[in-house]
């Protein structure tokens, strides 16, 4: 079964912190408190080492006790987001829950995206024209379009 994702096509934010917050905003179960704590967790990970995994693609991720299922949010930016030294045009944000199986599932998710990006995959991903196409190229089911 495919993982499900949310997607925001035109990110308004131009800096890393605002872009992460903008993406967390479109996940319905997150109230303000949870969003703020998840933002802290994701920013801590970024502070420890920016997650730019390919030219123009960043992959902010963490596992957190604040989610009970995998939450994946895609964000596309035409003007680019400062991450902070490189411009990023695609953000693949994901948060995995803390369950006995989740370390393996988290690894699997990292691997899934890595496999999709490598060997020319990134070019196809950047050529996607909407959220549905983008989700499909990353082997995800789209829940909502932004």
């Amino acid at each position: 079964m495919k993982n499900r994702c949310y997607c925001k096509w035109n990110l308004m934010s131009t800096d890393r912190s605002s872009a992460i917050a903008e993406l967390l905003d479109i996940v319905p179960p997150f109230d303000e408190r949870r969003k703020s704590l998840l933002l802290t967790a994701l920013e801590s990970r970024e502070q420890a080492g920016a997650t730019v995994v390919h030219e123009s693609i960043s992959m902010p991720h963490c596992r957190s006790i604040l989610v009970d299922d995998f939450e994946i949010v895609l964000g596309r930016s035409k003007k680019g987001v400062g991450w902070p030294e490189e411009k990023v045009e695609l953000v693949i944000l994901f948060i995995s829950p803390v369950t006995p199986k989740s370390p393996e599932e988290h690894t699997q998710l990292i691997k899934q995206f890595a496999d999709r990006i490598k060997d020319g995959g990134a070019e196809k991903i950047f050529a996607a024209e909407d959220c549905a196409e983008l989700a499909e190229l990353l082997d995800l089911d789209l829940l909502d379009g932004g």
């Binding site: 390919h54 988290h106 690894t107 890595a114």
Partner: peptide, 22 residues
């Protein structure tokens, strides 16, 4: 959450995938 991230980065499988991504 920080402790989970620190522990995850000690796992060989996660380290391997992260390294593959640069």
């Amino acid at each position: 959450d920080l402790d989970i991230m620190i522990a995850d980065l000690s796992r060989n499988d996660i380290r391997k995938e992260e390294e593959k991504l640069g």
